[in-house]
Amino acid sequence: MKKILLYASLVLVGVAMLVPFYWMFVLATRSTSEIFRFPPPFWFGDNLASNFANMLRTVNVFGSYLNSVIISTAYTFLVLLFCSMGGYAFAMYRFPGRDKLFGILLVTMMIPFMAGIVPWFIMMAKFKLINSYFALIVPGCANAFGIFWMRQYCQNNVPGSLIDAAKIDGCSEWLIFFRIIVPILPPAFAALGIMSFIGSWNDFMQPLLILRNSRLFTLPLLLRYLQGDPMRGADQGVLMLANTLAVLPLLIAFFAASKYFLSGLTAGAIKE
């Protein structure tokens, strides 16, 4: 009996988590007048094709898709490159000031960067980086958390003897990193990469401040634009369809890789 109650509450929480997604899918197939009816629609309608046509007429969803893909991919690639280099150096090299520098890195994780948000924006404007992807890709790409993460992984998984052997064989440092270290890192890449990609894909505040030209909009900006503009936002079906398209790739990817991803997240955190 107790067990049934426990399952029931877990399932109830799960349903609460899923209902908004389900309803979003349902509304994406409905017309605006159906959406504003009472009681609200619970099952899929037949307005998907017309919503899709309307969406293509009003906004450039696929342009935004491309923008989001470019920014998130470039950002994730640089995060993995710089964080693995930094984490590897902190884990496997001995050099003067290493522990102090690592201490500084840890402290920076505690700094609320919002303190500098206004000068940050002014700086981007002065550098003529408004409406450029640089401001969204580069500043955060060598981040403290990622380096910390990769250092943990390197310490636990890269054998020092392997590096020594490679050095004796006359491998250059560069070659050691790309031929020997990088092939060991994919599990760490997976979790950090997914987190970075999701963060960049969903980011709203930074693109809002930086991207003022609607042709450059990422998906979250496009959706906000669709919602905020009373002329276009009035079409709820279109809005929900665009919403669905924006999250669907992440939902599918997460469902497919969730076991791997969640265990990677938890495994990385234990060793803190």
Binding site: P220, L251, S258
Partner: peptide
């Protein structure tokens, strides 16, 4: 399932 909302965008 519980982690699903974390994956999605705040705007959506």
């Amino acid at each position: 399932v519980y982690f699903l909302p974390v994956v999605t965008s705040s705007v959506v």
